[in-house]
Amino acid sequence: MFYNRHPMTNESNTTRREPLIDAKLVQRLAVSDSGFVFDPVSGHSFSVNETGLRILRLLKEGQDLPSAVKALCDEFLGSAADIERDVLEFAGLLRKQFPA
């Protein structure tokens, strides 16, 4: 299972490496390049923007927070702190779509 909370301290980044969200939940999603996402189990659908789409794909691969943030830092121009904050927030939104 995934953790509901991820401390934002550097310490946690180096000591905890659980995935941000259960990859199985994300894997069942039909994700199109347009950012349209459909969950065949719940029947819900939602839209994500391009960075949201990228995070979703990283999560599908089962990436944990530090590796997801690193991958995004390599791809995008932005501060690691901002990106980490945004990824955490986005994972929170996803968890809301799939309450445990």
């Binding site: 939602f46 960075t51 949201g52 995004l72 791809e75 995008f76 121009l77 901002d82 945004d86 779509q97």
Partner: peptide, 12 residues
């Protein structure tokens, strides 16, 4: 590199 923008998720 593209500039990072905040990710968004909008439920339908």
């Amino acid at each position: 590199k593209p500039v990072w923008i905040k990710p968004t998720l909008r439920a339908h």
